[in-house]
Amino acid sequence: MTQDFPQSALLHADYMAMLRRKRLYSALMLALFVALMASGFVVVDERNAGGFWGGLHRLFDFPASVLSEAWEKRAALPGHIVEYFPTLLETVNIAAVSTLFGAILGTLLSMLATQGLAPWPRLIPLFRRIMDVMRAVPEIVIALILIFVLGGGPVPAMIAIAFHTVGALGKLFSEVNENASLKPVEGLTSVGASWGQRMVLGVMPQVAPNYLSYALIRFEINIRASAILGFVGAGGIGYELKNAISWGQGRFDAAAAIFLMLFLTIVAVDQLSGWLRDLLTHGRQRGIFA
C-alpha cells in the first residue's frame, strides 16, 4: 500500500517520530516525578523524629487508646459534649464572622479589580496584587502576631481568617464578575447612577448566586481553619482539644468527645452547604416570578 503512495510513507515516518518523541518526553517527566517523590520521601522520612516504617505499626495505638478510654467512660460523654458545646459554637462563630467580613470586603475588592466594573481601571493590577498577597499570607502568621498585640481569644483568629478570605474570595468573585453582563450597568450609568448604585443594582443581582456558593465553600474551609488556629492558642474548640490531649493519660474521653463534635460539625456543614449550593445552581427554574 505505502509503495503506491510515497507521501503517505513519509507521513507515517513523520508521525512515528513524533509519537516516539512524545513518549520519550512523557517517560522523562514520569521518571522525574518518581525520582522527586522517592527522594522527597527519603529526605522527609530522615528528618522526622520517628521513621515511617517504624511508626506504621503504631498508627492505630493512639486512636485505639482514645477509643478504649472513651468507651470505658462513655457515661461521661454527654457531659463532655455539653461542656464543650460553647467552645464549638465559638469556633463556628469565628468561621461565620470571618466569612461574612471576607465576603463583604472581597466583593468590594473584586469589583475594584474587574475590567469594565472598576472605577479606576489603571489601579486594577494593584488591587489584584493586594488580593494575591492577602491570599498568600498563612492565617497562622497573622493570628500569632495579633495574639501578641491583642491578647488571646477569638478575635485574632477571626481577623486572620477574614484577611485570608478577602483574598481568596476576591479572586473567585472577580472571575464571576468577568462573566456578568455589562448591559444593566450601562443602563444604570445612562440614568446617572453612582458607582455604588451601579454595582449594587446592576451587578449584584447577576452574581449573587455564584457569590453565595463560593462563600459557602469558604465557610466550610474556614471552620477547619478556625479549629486549627484554636490549637495554636486562638480560642475555640481547638484550644480545648490541645489541652485535652496534652494533659496526657486520663483526659482522652474529653478528647474523643471533641474529636466527635468537630467531625460531626464539619460533616454537617459540608452537607448543608452542598445542599444549599445545589439549590442555588439547579433549583432556579420555578416560573417567571420565582
Binding site: N48, A49, G50, G51, F52, G55, L56, R58, L59, D61, F62, P63, R224, A227, I228, F231, G238, L241, I245, F259, L262, F263, I266, V267, D270
Partner: peptide
Amino acid sequence: GVDALIWTIVLARAF
C-alpha cells in the same frame, strides 16, 4: 471530615 488537624495529632503520636 476528620480534619487535617486531627490527622496531624493522630499521626504525630505514631511517627
